[in-house]
Nucleic acid binder design. Structure first.
Lengths: 248, 248
DNA sequence: GAAATATGTTGGTATATACCAGTGGACAAT
DNA sequence: ATTGTCCACTGGTATATACCAACATATTTC
């Protein structure tokens, strides 16, 4: 075997070096929240690499949660993470209001719907039961955070859709229908966002996000509301306070 | 302006069509769990596209949670998701054992460590306090699921590292040190896995995963264990049962 | 039979190029 | 002041090519 192979084993890939450089810029504070990051072509020229390599570096920033892109506008520095305490069982809207966060809620869709097998099981109703369904987009400072679709039993909350739904649902149901959230089941998973969701969240398709499914029950233990949320995964985290049950 | 532009507006990108076709194969059941997916070159030839396009389709399957890749071996069909109930406060190991899942635990690292600012705050000890730290890799059926690094106060659990740590920590601490987990704080977020983590999990770098941080307290409310887990995001989901506190 | 070697496959990285489709600003026409 | 057109810029998609490193499996050598 010839031993003249003198490859200097320069291990770290070039896109990684660029990624590190850009990350330093962000963590140093040279680039602040929502600041515009250099474009793919800009990075390519600045570091003397091809556009594909520049893109890989920028995409690495995205999966790291340090950057996000909005459509064809460009890439931006991610804001610090929001923490949503799921064990408090108050809606994100009510919590944000209490913390002085300027939360905007946009109605996307609202209307009647009938329960399919999954919804019927989760809400303990018959398949075909009439439900109210409504989808809302939640934003902070003009930036989309998550989309929520909620399903409630129509017979229990007549004329719900005639209220202004751009507020906390739990608040609405407690004020007008005397129904209080008492217990809930939450499921969190990571998944790719659909094309529609991506559009609403201002993301490109095939981005990973966090899905949060919620079943909310009243004091009698009867489920009355199902909520499906899809969050931009880079800019949220979910905390819960748990406790071992006295009995087992 | 010339009006002879007759581009037929064939909207769906080619990689999306390939993605859809492959997804159908999986959801139909033609491809079962852990089955080998066609390679990038294979897909490229079969559908008459370039390798980069084939790769995009396969990567879309990954962010959708339908496929995973292990190093340079190839891509495989993801198994159905595991559900981990974080509000039960029993370790995943104990829960898996109870459910008859063949969980394998590999020791990665174990040794003494001193508390940095973050650990000291979370464990309510002084900075520099002696801790036991150990890292374990959890597998099911030979497939890596998550990595956990735990930190416990050394003074409280002398000689802990001399036990076989390839079992449930909560069980170990309750049997040998009479310490019971009572309450806990859990935080879940999505983030990119590091190079080391990727290697242990058999993933490529810059894959997104789910991080789970846990603070476990005893019946007196004193924290005694910190756990950091990083999960392969496509194959797990986390559920919690929450309850509105009587007082507010 | 066991150990070393070769071969082919797979993803990983990288370049160079091309055209398309939204976005937003500059600027002209109204 | 408003409207509209144009253009530069952005990411999105796609092709073609090249070499490397890890891996699996034969094949050869001992």
């Amino acid at each position: 075997m010839p031993d003249d192979s003198a490859t200097p084993t320069e291990d770290p890939p070039r896109f990684r070096l660029i990624f590190d450089a850009l990350r330093r810029e962000i963590t140093n504070g040279n680039l602040v929240e929502h600041a515009v990051l250099p474009s793919e072509r800009g990075v390519a020229e600045e570091y003397g690499v091809s556009r594909m390599t520049a893109r890989r570096a920028l995409e690495a920033l995205e999966t790291e949660g340090l950057a996000y892109r909005e459509g064809r506008k460009g890439r931006f520095v991610s804001p610090r993470r929001l923490t949503y305490d799921i064990s408090q069982m108050v809606s994100f809207a009510a919590d944000a209001k209490a913390r002085g966060i300027n939360l905007q809620i946009e109605m996307i869709d609202a209307g009647p719907q009938t329960a399919d097998a999954k919804l019927a099981r989760e809400l303990s109703v018959q398949i075909g039961e009439h439900l109210h369904a409504f989808t809302r987009l939640f934003k902070i400072g003009g930036h989309a955070i998550f989309i929520e679709t909620e399903f409630v039993i129509a017979a229990r909350f007549p004329d719900l859709l005639r209220y202004d739904l751009r507020q906390s649902t739990t608040l609405l149901l407690s004020q007008h229908y005397n129904t209080l959230a008492h217990t809930g089941d939450v499921t969190i998973r990571m998944r790719g966002v659909s094309a529609i969701e991506a559009k609403l969240l201002g993301l490109s398709a095939n981005t990973a996000g966090i899905e949060l499914e919620q079943v909310i029950r009243d004091t009698a233990g009867a489920p009355f509301c199902i909520g499906h949320q899809i969050w931009r995964g880079e800019l949220a985290e979910f905390s819960a306070r748990t406790m071992v049950k006295p009995e087992s």
